[in-house]
């Protein structure tokens, strides 16, 4: 797997974790059952995301920023040839080329980075 794509995946998963802590869906459970200090957790996640963002190459970071500023999701899974960012089929040629996630690809429709899930 492309290392930049791996970084993007990590960032995406951390952003998701942060969103669930802030939008209320997971807040109570994490605080009450797991005794997580929500504010500290959010700060820690923000710091980690920022650190990982700095490790993105300049071009990819710029593309990432454009997506991240307007959408909650920066990486979309491709399952059975469908981009789950916009639910549009990814072209067969692109899908097979990127099938092993060996390079960073974006969806031509929604702009999300693509991660091909097997």
């Amino acid at each position: 797997m492309d290392q930049q794509l791996e970084l993007l995946l990590e960032i995406q998963d951390l952003r998701m974790q942060r969103r669930e802590l802030t939008d209320g869906s997971l807040t109570d459970l994490e605080a009450e059952v797991f005794d997580v200090k929500i504010e500290d957790a959010i700060q820690s996640l923000d710091e980690k995301v920022e650190e990982l963002e700095q490790r993105l190459g300049r071009g990819i970071r710029a593309r990432y920023r454009r997506i991240a500023d307007k959408a909650p999701r920066v990486v979309a899974p491709v399952i059975n040839g469908i981009c789950y960012g916009c639910f549009v089929a990814v072209s067969t040629a692109r899908a097979s080329e990127a099938d092993r996630n060996l390079r960073v690809e974006s969806c031509e429709y929604c702009g999300c980075f693509l991660y091909h899930v097997r």
Binding site: E20, S44, V117
Partner: peptide, 28 residues
């Protein structure tokens, strides 16, 4: 990702039980 979640606070809820959890793009 599971390690990162553990770093926010242990998922050991007591009485010998732990529930590590996370969301990740690697599962469908």
């Amino acid at each position: 990702m599971l390690k990162r979640r553990e770093n926010l606070g242990s998922t050991g809820i007591g009485r010998g039980i732990a529930i590590p959890h996370c969301r990740s793009l690697v599962v469908t």
